[in-house]
């Protein structure tokens, strides 16, 4: 309670408590923000590491190659059914056919089937296109 008495420096009552509270808020907030920034820096470092760049560049090249292959091997407006064992590949192929062909949910109405198979044409994979 000593800090509630006027001091010789002329500070108002409660001055020391208020200063201590402000310092505590500054320290706690700065620490929390600082830890978060450090965490973010680690994430950016991991994203931009050499192996990450190589892997993701290969993935993107693969995707753009398949995108071009769809447009060169399928007629525009074709109805296609995606046949692939990997769910993510199915979603990617539906995405990459969008705007060029019309994906179907079942094989019955489709004139073509497409899939991703191991190969050399698109950085380790190839687009498999078949007429039904």
């Amino acid at each position: 309670m000593a800090d509630d008495r006027p001091t010789t420096a002329g500070n108002p009552p409660g001055h020391r408590t208020a200063v201590a509270a402000r310092v505590a808020v500054v320290c706690l907030a700065a620490l929390a923000l600082g830890f978060s920034v450090a965490h973010g820096h680690r994430a950016t470092t991991a994203e931009t590491s050499r192996p990450s760049v190589v892997d993701w560049t290969r993935f993107t090249d693969q995707e753009e190659c398949i995108y071009r292959a769809i447009r060169s091997e399928l007629p525009a407006g074709a109805t296609v059914h995606v046949v692939t064992a990997v769910a993510y590949d199915r979603l990617r192929l539906i995405e990459l056919t969008t705007g060029w062909a019309e994906p179907t949910r079942t094989s019955a109405p489709a004139s073509w089937t497409i899939g991703i198979v191991p190969g050399a044409s698109c950085a380790g994979v190839s687009l498999d296109v078949r007429r039904t």
Partner: peptide
Amino acid sequence: AGLRTPLI
């Protein structure tokens, strides 16, 4: 700078 890696 993370955009230097083509993450998708």
